[in-house]
Design a protein around this nucleic acid. Structure first.
Lengths: 214, 214
DNA sequence: CATAAAACTGTGCAGTTGGACAGTTTTATC
DNA sequence: GATAAAACTGTCCAACTGCACAGTTTTATG
């Protein structure tokens, strides 16, 4: 008889009158958040659903209840992080009020770098699974390629506008920048806000300097 | 009684009169080689000693016999790959007969890039374990840092010699180049020899162009 | 050819994992 | 307050992993 369940009460069963729907949404979110952190630091196979459950202070069976299986959870995490990044970008682009082409390029570059530096989880996860070539997640390739293509398109645009040295191959240049970004901000994320912003500035400077027409 | 061992004969027990010492060295080498490939593609935790044993066509207990435990095997693989890279570099630098500073820089860069592109396993493994932060392998940080420092020193030298733009931060520039290298040649290694060499040339060109004093 | 060391192998074990499932608690609704 | 659905939980299971170990085969040497 496996019926001793409930001897340990829920995390906060009755507490606030949140309504059960909202509470379910909250636990879903909490699971997604902790899963994102663990997937980003240990990789898909590097952490168990039990690890995630413990971090989110939830029974591991509850993860199964909300997300079905581990792979679905992973996909949900990716969606969650993408929507998060999308919202952050929405906010950032509103601040862009510069006008000279070089300044627009600098702003755009800075925004992209800053967003990644502040919340590197998505990049880390994509990079990791791509590196490990988990054939389960063919989508990763697609997502990563989409991001790349958008960036390459942007560089080409800047080349036509005369802001970027027209002699360099846009794809190579993009890999250069993406690689540097990875090394500096994704591999070991910078926690301190001030230090990170300083690094973002320095990095943006280097990109602009290297890329500008002489 | 666990004594049914030997029902499956050795890989090639008597075959050539190689001498048992040499045969032991051969199996050691075979294990190291296959372990390198698997560690590089799946990571330390991503492959089991049984996987490695199967790839090397050896019983998994034999790995234990030769290397003790998995962690020691991993360290031996790193040593093995480092010595391999060292020997390859020895050969390459002998070919360097250019004289102008720019050409020396180009040659040196090209050699380093080519070596990594041809045998990306070491870089992949270091990058992977560093990314996953396997605290077991604190050495990784040291090794990676050593490689980085050597490269940074080289860039500084080139700056003093006037070959590299003195305005750029050597550490940032190094990360840039290392990152691009990673993206282009380590993340998904290029198998075809000709294609790879073409890419190495193109990449070298980009580095030289971006880095040169205007 | 006896023999002992070296090289190698199968099997057992405890721990962890993803998943399955029956069970319990909570909450909205009548 | 009864009740049914939703939210959540403990526990069992098969598969896999690193390691331990007793056993077997091979080979060099007297």
């Amino acid at each position: 008889m496996p019926a001793t369940a409930g001897s340990i009460p829920n995390a906060s069963p009755v507490d606030d009158g949140e309504g059960r729907q909202q509470r379910a949404i909250d636990t879903r979110r909490s699971i997604l958040n902790h899963a994102a952190l663990l997937f980003a630091s240990s990789g898909y196979d590097g952490c168990s659903t039990r690890d995630i459950a413990a971090a989110a202070k939830v029974s591991h069976a509850n993860i199964r209840y909300h997300f079905g299986d581990k792979e679905t959870l992973w996909r949900s995490v990716i969606e969650f992080l993408i929507s998060e990044e999308y919202e952050a970008n929405e906010l950032l682009t509103q601040l862009d009020t510069s006008d000279t082409p070089t300044e627009i390029f600098r702003q755009h570059t800075r925004n992209a770098i800053s967003a990644v530096a502040k919340r590197p989880q998505l990049q880390r996860i994509l990079h990791l699974e791509r590196l490990l070539g988990n054939s389960r997640f063919a989508d990763v390739e697609t997502i990563a390629r989409d991001i790349d293509e958008e960036r390459v398109g942007h560089i080409e645009m800047m080349q036509r506008a005369g802001t970027v040295n027209p002699d360099v191959d846009p794809a190579f240049l993009n890999e250069f920048i993406a690689g540097g970004l990875l090394q500096r901000f994704v591999l070991e994320p910078i926690e301190d806000d001030d230090e990170r912003e300083r690094m973002v500035d320095a990095f943006t400077d280097l990109v602009v300097r290297l890329v500008q027409t002489p």
